[in-house]
Structure formats: structure tokens, C-alpha cells
Design a protein around this nucleic acid. Sequence first.
DNA 1: CTGAAACGTTGACAAAAGTCAAGAGTGGGG
DNA 2: CCCCACTCTTGACTTTTGTCAACGTTTCAG
Lengths: 189, 189
Amino acid sequence: MVDTLEAYIRARISHNDTQLTDVLSAFVTRKVRRGEMLLQAGEVCQHCYFVAKGCIQVFVSTDGGTETSRDFVFENNWLTDIYGFANQQPSQEFFRAVEPSVVMAIHRDQFGRMQQQVPQFEQIYRQILEQSYATTVYRVNTFIALDALDRVRWLMQHQPRILSRLSNKLVASYLGISPETLSRIKARL
Amino acid sequence: MVDTLEAYIRARISHNDTQLTDVLSAFVTRKVRRGEMLLQAGEVCQHCYFVAKGCIQVFVSTDGGTETSRDFVFENNWLTDIYGFANQQPSQEFFRAVEPSVVMAIHRDQFGRMQQQVPQFEQIYRQILEQSYATTVYRVNTFIALDALDRVRWLMQHQPRILSRLSNKLVASYLGISPETLSRIKARL
DNA sequence: CTGAAACGTTGACAAAAGTCAAGAGTGGGG
DNA sequence: CCCCACTCTTGACTTTTGTCAACGTTTCAG
């Protein structure tokens, strides 16, 4: 699975092979079973993950037990509680594999070391940060304004993968609507 | 107004006075009238602003003309379309002064120069990025799950300034509810 | 100061979405 | 490969929120 990560990095930064090997060896491969948690709310996130296979749900849980998904991270994407990871603050979110998954994990300490040793690593971090931020801003702008129907339409246009690959229950938790409403909306499209 | 920015920077980075002067001189002071736009959707954001006084509304506009506010940036905070600013992409958002305001503007070219010349500048940028990201994540997690009443309660707890300082219409556009609903909710609290 | 334009409040009604329940369908762990 | 737990769908009903309208209040630009 390290090849997925290697390809990702090769495509993005200039490098020499020694450095690339160094970077790759800082990552640990980890299999995650369906339903298994990678991070619990309240925990301080110590790892940055590259999802090599599968899908990780990022969600919050209310007192009533309702779960709301902020994001689904598929293969070839990064996953971490960025703010908590950088500032050693407890996470408010949970990470859970919703498919059998494989992640490449780098510990915070190694991550810091890499940032100092490999300048391009810093660049990648900033790219991830900027990209994640842009995605989240987009999500706020879209969803505060739209009703249930338009949210589904938006998802069909911008994230069809979420609709086709995940259960209605999960999709509904991403859209902030009930599964029943989602079911009815899909029926009349 | 440059003193506001100077205090902000002094409080955050180690420096020598020559560097600080260099940094400050890269900024241009600009008065913004109430209602005046600092950025139009579709435009590429060329500046990073430090709001020294007043309040800038960050919002999107739907085809129907409905405006939804993603953020209100008060004095002592940074304002830019981060993704578009960094990647020279058109903005989807508008920036508008909702109070008579004063901003300190730094052009993208100067910004890049400062990042190279003053290492701490890079740190500040990353801080802003991480902070903005965290805020936006918080907003998504909160609002997708909550109904109108709980959104208002959340705002009272976390952003009372928005409630007390801005008009009901603006607050409603931030909460994603109608002004009438907000008015009714406030009446029975 | 002042008046026009925007804003806030309230009521009546309509539309959207949630809740609860029950039965059919499905998928993945053993 | 099969069965059980979970999910999906549909219906009936309730609750929440939006919309439209009317009118009083505020605000700020000239």
C-alpha cells in the first residue's frame, strides 16, 4: 500500500530518492476494520493519516447520540484533526472506518522532524491545509443556504461518490437531514 | 491605525525593529464605507486584509439574490479569500463592510516577498490558516446538526458579539434561518 | 434635523422536514 | 452461503420553519 502514497508524493514534490525513502519510512501501514475508530472525540490526535484504501467517516456526536458527518475521506486523501494535531488539543470529532480500510500513519513527532528535514514536506502540509480549508468553506456556503432537495442535487453534482458508495443513513448524516427525507427525495428525482 | 496591526504582530512573533518596520510598510491603510465591497465574487482576491476597525461581512449570493453570510470579521482579525489568494482563483464570496471600517491591505506580491524575507511571516500565515480552518470546521459541525433555536443558543454562547453588534437580518443570514424566525426565537428566550 | 428607505415584529397560513411505526429488502460476518 | 441485524421505504401525523403582508420603529445620508 506504500506505493499509493509514494505515487501521491512523487506527483507533487520535487525530490531525490533518498529523501523520498526517508519520508516513506516515517509512515506505518495500518489496517482498519469496518466500524473501527481511528480517533475518539476528546482524544488528542497524534497522527496524520494518508488513506490508501477504503473510506473514513469524520463525524461528531450529540448528547442524544445523533451522529453528523462532516466529511468522508476516501483513498488518496489525507485525514487528521488538523487543529488538534498541530496544537495538541483534544478532538471534537470521531474518525471511523465505514469500509475495510488501509491507512498510512505518521506520528506527530516524525511529522515535525520531516517538516524540518524535508522542506517540501512543509509545502505538502500547507497544500493539505489550504485544500481542506477550501473544501470546508465550500461546504458551509453551500449548505447553510440550501434546503434538503438542493443539498442532494449539490451532492450529485459535486460528490457523486458519496451518494453511490455510502449508505443512505451515512449520506443523510452528511446532508443534515433524516434518512427518511433523503429516501423520499431520491424517489422523486 | 497601523498601531493596531503593529501590536498584533508584536504580540505574536519575535522580531527586530527593522524587520517589523519592513513588514508594516508593506501594508496600505484603506478606509471602507458602510456597504462598500472589498471583494466581488468572480474576482481574484489580490489582498490580505487586517481589519483594524469595523466589521466585514463574508457572504455568498444565490441566483435568487438571497445572501448567506459565512463569517463576520471584526477588528483585529484577518480577512482574505485564502484559497483564491494563494492559488489565484476567482472568489465565490463577497466581502462587504457592514460598518464604517478601516483595513490594512497587503498585496499578494508583497505578501510573497515578506514570506521569503521574514520567516516569521510564514508562521503567521500558517496560524491564520489553521485558525480559520478550525473555525470553519466548528461551524459545519455545529450547524448541520442544530435546529434554529439551538443555533441561536450556540451563537449566544460562542459569538455573542455577532448577536449584539449586527442587525437581525445579518444574524439570520449567518444562521441560515429567516429574519422572522430569528425574531420569534429571540422573543421567547 | 428630517424623511425616505430599510429593518423589526407579529399574525395567518403554507410548505418543508422530522418523527414514529411497520414491513420489505439486503449485505456482510461467521 | 445463509441468517440476523441493520437498512430502506412508505404512510400518517406533528413540528418546525418559511412566506407574505401589514404596520410600527429605527437609521443614516443629505
